[in-house]
Design a protein around this nucleic acid. Structure first.
Length: 427
RNA sequence: GGUGAGGUGGGUGAGUGGCUGAAACCACCGGUUUGCUAAACCGGCGUACGGGUAACACUGUACCGCGGGUUCGAAUCCCGCCCUCACCGCCA
């Protein structure tokens, strides 16, 4: 969430930038002013309360001394006074609690303020193409197939069996399909390691505190699988456990940047999506992803964002897949993000762009909930910036590879993956 | 699942009702000194929200796993929860 300090200091900018997400500038200003007035009330309330508490402490100390000196009467008088003070403190405490709840409710409901470069817009149609694919698309035979047909033809993925074992959206990879996936995971992890990321294997379930800290709760509660009995959530992305490494952490300035990567399966309920978009691997409940996360000094975060974008871009170049890069418009931007670049890969069999990566700078929005801070040279504490990106999401990459590299003789595996495989062609 | 022990500042760890936001040691930072990859000595060293300041200084309150309670007063007593460790059981 945004910090109150930032809202007070940059109210106009925030209100203006939130119009990119479709807010009415005047409406949001009303909300923000309400927030600030709650805060003012809370501060004056606190001051009065603190004074009373101070008095109470003082009196209590005196009572102790009076008892030691045997002055029972005077002690009793003071006691009576403290009891009165306590009553007042109680009402101040209650006021404080109420105001804090109001303030937090508003703060939690406000999404991140989009970066200056974020375009206005309502939906994905308004996303800005910052880098388009200008080379020709792969030329396929006339009878080229979409990946779900190819998967069946070469026995790579069994959607029906996955549905039988679990349900729809849980594909079962087998044979060379399974190996291809393993090769991709290794390739992505190796590339991340070369780029300086520490590889970890995090838990795949997280508690409520972790899901809140990265912003999956309360915003995307319906997206996550939840195990009531143990009060745990299946992770919708590796971002959650990775970023939570830094919950309640105060870094030194010299610790920047922190770079962590992990391969994890991701679980998403994806409630309410049907139709051709969900066919095959286009949208599934369980998929694999290699995630990269950086914790940054605020001054560096946009530089690092660019680095992450080119890291992802390189992966796609090495995989020889046609891709384009989009800058998400305000309407398509995630709740917690200030700026997001999406990567789409062209899947020639279905003649469709598939989203395979999302690289974002959250600025201090996540850090605020995470309480992820750093100490500067003067010993002052500030919020760090967090960034993350998929590098890459597997299911759709598999789809694109199958479709783009199909030939009459079979599917020719991209060269970079061959060292991870004991075959070069799927037939 | 059972039994036992325990959760205090970056770490170790003292502290069973007021003088404890918290000893001591280690680590860390600054300084002095000795001239040698170090030691000794001195000083500093938690976070949050307020007040205060140009900025410091200074200052109020809260926080000793979390939440509640008892009391004039709680790290310290009581209740609930969470977590960690050890052993047993079960299990990949």
């Amino acid at each position: 969430m945004l910090t109150l300090k930032k809202i007070i200091a940059e109210l106009d900018f925030i209100a203006k930038s939130l119009t990119k997400r479709g807010y009415n500038e005047d409406d949001i200003k009303v909300i923000l002013h309400e927030l600030i007035s709650h805060d003012k009330k809370r501060k004056s309330n606190q001051q009065a309360n603190d004074d009373l508490k101070s008095k109470m402490k003082d009196f209590s100390g005196q009572i102790g001394k009076l008892y030691k000196e045997g002055k029972q009467d005077e002690a009793s008088k003071l006691k009576a006074e403290v009891v009165e003070i306590k009553e007042k403190i109680k009402t101040y405490d209650e006021n404080d609690k109420e105001l804090k709840i109001k303030i937090d409710d508003i703060l939690l409901s406000i999404p991140n303020a989009p970066h200056n470069s974020v375009p206005h817009g309502k939906s994905e149609e308004d996303n800005e193409v910052v880098k388009d694919w200008t080379d020709p698309f792969p030329i396929l035979e006339k009878d080229a197939l979409p990946h779900w047909e190819l998967a069946k033809k070469y026995n790579l993925i069994d959607f029906e069996l996955g549905a039988f074992i679990t349900g729809s959206g849980f594909p079962l990879f087998r044979n060379k399909g399974s190996k291809l996936k393993r090769a991709l995971i290794n390739f992505f992890l190796d590339e991340a390691e070369k780029a300086g990321y520490e590889e970890i294997r995090p838990p795949l379930m997280v508690n409520e505190a972790s899901a809140l800290a990265t912003g999956q709760l309360p915003d995307k509660e319906g997206q996550m699988y939840y195990m009531e009995k143990d009060d745990l959530y299946l992770i919708p992305t590796g971002e959650v456990p990775i970023t939570n490494i830094y919950r309640d952490v105060i870094l030194k300035e010299s610790d920047f940047p922190q770079k962590v990567t992990a391969y994890t399966p991701c679980f998403r309920r994806e409630a309410g999506s049907y139709g051709s978009d969900v066919k095959g691997l286009n949208r599934v409940h369980q998929f694999d992803k290699v995630e990269i996360v950086q914790i940054s000094h605020p001054n560096e975060s946009y530089k690092l964002l660019d680095q992450m974008v080119s890291h992802v871009e390189n992966l796609l170049i090495k995989l020889e897949l046609p891709y384009r890069i989009l800058r998400l418009c305000g309407g398509d931007l995630g709740f917690t993000s200030a700026l997001t670049y999406d990567f789409e890969v062209y899947s020639a069999g279905q003649k469709k762009w598939l989203e395979v990566s999302s690289v974002s700078n959250f600025e201090a929005f996540q850090s605020n909930r995470l309480k992820l801070r750093y100490k500067d040279r003067d010993g002052k504490i500030h919020l760090a910036h967090t960034l993350n990106g998929s590098a890459l999401a597997l299911a759709r990459i598999v789809a694109a590879i199958l479709e783009n590299f199909q030939t009459p003789d079979g599917i020719v595996v991209p060269k970079v993956l061959r060292k991870y495989l004991n075959f070069e062609i799927i037939n």
